[in-house]
């Protein structure tokens, strides 16, 4: 555990809590892509199956259980409790165009051809593109609420901080996981346009609005 990894994990945690608080306080999931949230639930469910096969640390297990349960809670709130506020007309990204190619790639490019390892690889690849339905939705509506922007900034920062963690681990521990690093870089790059808008607008007190 190094400082980049710890802040990254805390940023990830903060993002999830921000999203849940926003929905709970406003009794609404307007502006949030349910498709991205389903993909995140799928990411955690397929990655953390090792909860049943290997123990790393209490921290590791608690975080995994937290991520799985909160992602399921988010999906439940969006599709059941606050379904009336879900903006499905703007959430039209075709997720099969992500899940099917990513599934195929996980079969072809992995560290080891075993069920758990393929599922782990699938989750790493899927996480890297899971935000696309959310970004697509924002480009369709042309705006994002400030709290949604904070959520996305925390969520994007997490993988960017993991890149610093991988640089650190490469130099000081000789650790290098090519699959995680490449996917993590792709994931971070997808957020760059949003990061630019966040810094130039949200941090100056303005909402994110895109030209029609």
């Amino acid at each position: 555990m190094n400082i980049f990894r710890l802040i990254g994990d805390m940023s990830h945690l903060l993002a999830i809590i921000l999203l849940l608080l926003k929905m709970w306080k406003t009794r609404s999931c307007a502006g949030i892509s349910g498709k991205s949230q389903i993909l995140f639930a799928l990411v955690f469910a397929s990655r953390y199956l090792d909860l049943f096969t290997s123990f790393v640390s209490v921290y590791n297990s608690v975080m995994k259980i937290f991520f799985i349960s909160t992602s399921l809670l988010t999906v439940y709130l969006m599709y059941f409790k606050f379904r009336a506020t879900y903006d499905s007309n703007h959430d039209t990204f075709r997720v099969e165009f992500l899940v099917i190619p990513v599934g195929g790639l996980a079969f072809l490019v992995n560290h080891e051809f075993s069920p758990l390892e393929i599922l782990w690889t699938f989750s790493i690849y899927l996480e890297s593109v899971a935000i696309l339905p959310q970004l697509f939705m924002m480009s369709k509506t042309g705006e994002a609420e400030t709290i949604t922007s904070h959520y996305l900034f925390a969520l994007g920062s997490y993988r960017a901080l993991y890149i610093l963690n991988w640089v650190y681990r490469y130099y000081f521990e000789g650790f290098f996981d090519l699959i995680a690093v490449v996917a993590g870089c792709v994931q971070t790059i997808l957020y760059c346009d949003f990061f630019y808008l966040y810094i130039t607008k949200v941090l100056k007190g303005k909402r994110i609005t895109l030209p029609a």
């Binding site: 090792d50 290997s54 790393v56 640390s57 991520f67 963690n165 000789g174 290098f176």
Partner: peptide, 10 residues
């Protein structure tokens, strides 16, 4: 260099 059998990252 290699990947760990037990994955400690989240």
């Amino acid at each position: 260099l290699g990947y760990p059998e037990t994955k400690d990252e989240l």
